[in-house]
Design a protein around this nucleic acid. Structure first.
Lengths: 152, 152
DNA sequence: TTAGGTGCAAACGTTTTGCAACTTG
DNA sequence: CAAGTTGCAAAACGTTTGCACCTAA
């Protein structure tokens, strides 16, 4: 529950340490708490979500610190920032081996993750057709989930 | 240049008028200027972009009015709102017959539009596999365009 | 005449920043 | 001890809203 499942957290720590060393950054207690809570989370966290988790462990952590730490994780490629309709940024762990897209219910805001290799192949074709070197992509399907269809 | 190309602006006007009549909304000079400037624009305009264009014609138009008018256009399905990385909302004319996705250069911010029916088909399959009724989607491919690859 | 629209400025919610105090290496 | 980091509160940012005045129907 809330754990990292089968993913390799150790690898994330290593990548982070490596990045911090290379950039002369310091490993503080706050950073440890924020990053560990983040790595142990599933799904798409807002700053507030993460701050709540972090404060259970270390109530004095300020909220600029969470922003700054997530910016750091974003910069070293360990977190993805997402913007779904509302005005809030949400963050997601960038597991080395995983890529998925999102299927979002317009009524109950439920978010389902999926992967589809066929789509990925076609995306690479589109990119190369335009001479682009593809780095990443974002695909979001918006619709009405089975539960909400039933409710009508 | 900056014109609407081969698209049918008249149809947009008709749809807008229809919507306004049905909702008891009024056709003001400001709305006319904002919507016409918007319909005559290509690409992805921020509120500021549009306000600049609008003020050439009618300098007294306030900037809440542009927001409110774009909200109206969004509500009646004549404009799409987009969020690319920065904090700004951008708007795009929702031409009746057209759907496209975006290929974005990470270095020069160039945006190319594309359509790919194969991808659309697979998207519909994914949605129905999860029991979703698909309403719309957003696909963005990020990479490096040919020009920027050459510059290195 | 009246419901709706406008422009302004103030309010809003999220994110960023300046700064003095504090840690890490 | 130097340089990076923190927490706070203030500022900044894009967007929304309250309100008195205006205008289309």
């Amino acid at each position: 529950m809330g754990s990292s499942g089968e993913h390799d957290v150790e690898q994330l720590r290593a990548r982070l340490n490596d990045y911090m060393t290379r950039h002369g950054l310091r490993s503080t207690e706050q950073r440890r708490v924020v990053t560990e809570q983040f790595f142990a989370s599933d799904g798409h966290l807002s700053i507030e979500d993460l701050l709540d988790k972090v404060r259970v462990e270390e109530p004095r952590i300020g909220y600029a610190t969470v922003y700054r730490t997530l910016k750091l994780l974003k910069d070293c490629g360990l977190a993805f920032e997402r913007h779904f309709g509302d005005g809030v940024s949400r963050y997601e762990v960038a597991w080395e081996d995983e890529h998925h897209d999102h299927l979002i219910c317009l009524e109950c805001e439920k978010i389902i993750e999926f992967e589809d290799e066929g789509i990925e192949v076609l995306q690479r074709e589109v990119a190369s057709k335009h001479g682009f070197k593809l780095v990443r992509h974002k695909l979001e399907l918006y619709g009405v989930c089975p539960d909400c269809q039933r409710k009508k």
